[in-house]
Lab assay of single mutants.
Amino acid sequence: MATGGRRGAAAAPLLVAVAALLLGAAGHLYPGEVCPGMDIRNNLTRLHELENCSVIEGHLQILLMFKTRPEDFRDLSFPKLIMITDYLLLFRVYGLESLKDLFPNLTVIRGSRLFFNYALVIFEMVHLKELGLYNLMNITRGSVRIEKNNELCYLATIDWSRILDSVEDNYIVLNKDDNEECGDICPGTAKGKTNCPATVINGQFVERCWTHSHCQKVCPTICKSHGCTAEGLCCHSECLGNCSQPDDPTKCVACRNFYLDGRCVETCPPPYYHFQDWRCVNFSFCQDLHHKCKNSRRQGCHQYVIHNNKCIPECPSGYTMNSSNLLCTPCLGPCPKVCHLLEGEKTIDSVTSAQELRGCTVINGSLIINIRGGNNLAAELEANLGLIEEISGYLKIRRSYALVSLSFFRKLRLIRGETLEIGNYSFYALDNQNLRQLWDWSKHNLTITQGKLFFHYNPKLCLSEIHKMEEVSGTKGRQERNDIALKTNGDQASCENELLKFSYIRTSFDKI
């Protein structure tokens, strides 16, 4: 039985969820670079991206490699990797027998973001014989899940209580170790020597080791999670996991709180800001991140802002960003909400898709409305799209047979046209069989910064309504002859009103 693990408890099935942008060198404390989270699957090609990484700022997932063999891993080693800020997950990587050479110096898994409450997941690794993470000293947050690894031993010899604050939620089941077939031998045991430290858990006094050649490092209890030197002297209180010299914040392997210019500090002093819960960055760093993602459509890219001495992905609820200094300031009234469309555009074809934009005031991208039916549609669209004030790209209304009016965009005031449909149009209306009105132009103002209007096959939309939009939106004169079809717009509506004058002759039985 794995020490510190839980057996036999019912657990939810383990679901495996399925960018080499360097964020800056980590400095003297770390020998390499800070790398983003990685999802490495199918083959070993991307694994080489770990070569210079000291910190993975995010998670590391290595999974679904069915053609790899043990010899493929023999020359692979990433000794610079010290810390993973989120979680480490391995799933069905064939041929991998140990992690001792792959990650010989991995010391800390912070667990800032977890995989279903777990910071370390080893699942269905069919050839893994031992973990071998002999320098792993601290899992700051989260638990361990090690399950269905039929060859995995050296679990009962690990004292997880020396690595985690609590072992109650560890789930370590259905491994070879369960069948008591392992016969784990710690260093020196074969020669009758006791080389590794022994600890007591559940009444068992057991030597602690990761492999037959690597003991588990056990520091004096007084050192807590700070770690200790090879001689057993406690590291500085700002260290986490390990250090090369005692009581020196510049000799830590990793930091308990924050890293700044080669030393570990309790908090980031001005003019620095907390970033990702582990390091200090200056304003320029946060500003660069903001600008890199301002026009990016890459998933996970955030326009970072500053709030409460932190550089964070977005302002919290009730705050909006001051564009001059990136500071989050309290909103006066309802907060603006910028919604970034991942692929640059979004099609609204149902109430469900409209709900995804609920509360958005600025759309960074283009909207395509293609709704053919739905219950209580006008009210639903207004509830979900009615706060949109600005669209950076274009607005396209296409084959939306259920629409009679666009009044559900009740606050839309600006279409920038930074991206144009077919390279020309910022407003595009095609084949809307029941569209009769755009907006009530006596109450609604709309500016279209650039781009043209396109109207074709809107049989109940009168040309007068379209011409009014040209005047109000500032697009009059931009359109070419064929942009607004004269014969297919309003051709099934009563669009022309003329005053009919009647004269009559009164007659009676005795007068003409």
Rank of each mutant, 00 (worst) to 15 (best):
L233Q: 11
T211Y: 02
L50H: 01
H48I: 10
C239W: 00
Q61S: 13
P31M: 14
C182M: 04
L106C: 00
Y272M: 02
H226T: 13
Q276P: 10
C215K: 08
K80A: 12
S161W: 05
G300A: 07
Q245M: 13
N325E: 14
R256T: 08
H302C: 05
D247N: 02
N43P: 02
K251S: 06
R263A: 13
V144E: 01
L102A: 04
S213C: 11
A119L: 00
T107E: 04
E151V: 12
G188P: 08
N105G: 07
Q276I: 03
V200W: 06
A119T: 09
L99C: 04
I306H: 07
V200N: 14
R263N: 05
P36I: 12
R74L: 03
D184S: 08
R69H: 11
V121E: 00
V126G: 12
S324G: 12
F123S: 11
F275E: 08
D159T: 10
L289K: 15
R256C: 02
V305W: 09
H127L: 14
E97G: 12
R69Q: 10
Q204V: 08
T329M: 11
L131Q: 01
W160C: 01
K67R: 09
C243R: 00
E168W: 13
N195R: 08
N42S: 11
H307G: 07
N282V: 03
D261K: 12
F103M: 12
E57Q: 12
T140H: 06
E57L: 04
G333F: 11
M137H: 06
C328I: 02
C53N: 00
L44I: 13
H290F: 05
L76E: 03
C53S: 00
V218K: 14
H214N: 12
N138M: 14
P334W: 14
P271G: 15
E33G: 11
R113P: 04
C243D: 01
G95A: 11
D248M: 04
K217V: 12
L155E: 04
G262L: 04
I40L: 12
Q216P: 02
G58M: 00
D177W: 05
L326C: 05
S213H: 06
S213Q: 06
N195G: 06
S143T: 06
Q287A: 01
T211N: 07
G32T: 04
S112V: 07
E124V: 02
V34P: 13
E231L: 06
Q299R: 09
R279S: 12
P70L: 12
D178K: 08
R92F: 03
D159C: 03
V167H: 10
P316D: 10
H290M: 11
V126Q: 02
E181L: 15
R110Q: 07
D248S: 09
L128A: 02
R69S: 05
N135D: 09
L96H: 01
L76Q: 04
S284P: 02
C255Y: 01
C328D: 01
G37Q: 10
I139W: 00
I222G: 12
N325P: 11
C235D: 00
C328Y: 03
M321T: 08
T229E: 09
P336C: 02
H307T: 03
Q276G: 15
C53R: 00
E57V: 07
K148H: 04
P79T: 05
C255S: 00
H127T: 08
C243S: 00
A230L: 05
F275S: 05
T211E: 15
T229F: 01
E57A: 11
C311V: 13
R297N: 09
V173R: 14
C234W: 00
L102G: 05
P269W: 08
Q287R: 07
I158V: 08
N309R: 10
F115A: 13
G188N: 05
L152S: 02
N170R: 09
Y87G: 01
Q216V: 05
N179D: 05
D177T: 02
V206H: 15
E49H: 03
L50I: 10
G183V: 10
K129P: 00
F116Q: 03
C219K: 02
Q216W: 07
C223V: 01
N257L: 04
H236P: 02
A156N: 15
Y134A: 04
C301D: 05
M38K: 11
C243T: 00
Y94A: 14
V200F: 14
A156H: 08
Q61T: 07
C209A: 01
K193R: 09
T329R: 14
V281I: 11
R92Q: 03
D277H: 12
R41A: 08
I312Q: 05
G300P: 13
K294W: 11
H302Y: 12
D169G: 09
H236T: 04
G188Y: 15
G241M: 01
E147P: 01
T189R: 12
G95V: 02
G142C: 15
R279F: 15
V200Q: 11
M83C: 08
V173E: 11
L106F: 03
N42L: 05
I139G: 01
Y304I: 08
N202I: 02
P336G: 06
D178H: 08
R141N: 15
C255T: 00
G232L: 03
Q299S: 05
N295G: 14
W210T: 03
V206T: 13
S296P: 04
E207L: 11
Y171G: 08
Q216G: 02
L326F: 06
T329K: 05
F275K: 02
C328E: 02
P187R: 04
F283N: 14
A119G: 10
G300E: 08
I62D: 00
T157A: 09
F103R: 02
G95H: 13
T140F: 05
A230R: 02
N308C: 04
V93T: 13
H212Q: 14
L96S: 01
Q204R: 08
F285K: 02
L332W: 13
N52M: 00
G227Y: 10
K67M: 12
T211F: 04
I146P: 00
G192M: 11
E180A: 06
I163D: 00
C219L: 02
N149P: 01
I109M: 02
P31G: 14
F123G: 04
G37K: 03
L90C: 11
R110W: 04
D178M: 13
K80S: 10
H290G: 10
Q303P: 09
N135S: 08
P31K: 10
S166I: 14
R256V: 09
R297F: 03
R256G: 02
L102H: 01
R110D: 01
L240Q: 06
N170A: 07
R297D: 15
V253M: 09
C311Q: 01
K148I: 01
C335V: 04
I122D: 00
K217A: 10
C243K: 00
E33D: 04
L326P: 07
A119K: 00
E181S: 11
M83W: 03
T329Q: 15
D86T: 01
K100N: 15
K251Y: 13
R69I: 11
C315F: 02
L155T: 08
R46C: 14
L131M: 13
D169I: 06
K193T: 12
P36Q: 08
T229W: 06
H236I: 02
L174M: 14
L99T: 08
R46P: 08
L233R: 05
L128N: 01
L60P: 00
G262D: 14
S166F: 11
L99I: 08
L128S: 01
G203S: 06
F283K: 15
F258E: 03
P187T: 11
C264D: 00
S284F: 09
L106Q: 00
T320V: 11
H290Y: 10
S161L: 10
L96V: 10
L131G: 01
N257S: 06
S225A: 05
A156F: 09
R110N: 04
H28W: 09
I62L: 09
D75G: 03
P220D: 05
P220H: 09
G183C: 10
I62H: 01
Q287T: 09
L29A: 14
N105Q: 06
L50E: 00
F275T: 04
R297W: 06
V34T: 07
L99P: 01
V206F: 15
S54A: 05
G95S: 04
V55L: 05
K176P: 12
G32W: 06
H302T: 12
P36V: 03
L152Q: 03
Q61E: 11
M137N: 11
Y304M: 08
K100V: 04
L90N: 00
C264T: 00
L47W: 03
P313Y: 02
G132Y: 01
C223A: 01
L136A: 01
H28K: 06
S54G: 00
K217Q: 07
F205D: 15
L60T: 01
D86G: 10
L174I: 10
N43F: 06
Y134V: 15
G188E: 05
C219A: 04
L29F: 03
K310A: 11
K310I: 06
H291Y: 14
Y304N: 01
N308I: 08
H307I: 14
G203A: 15
E207T: 13
Y273E: 00
G262Y: 02
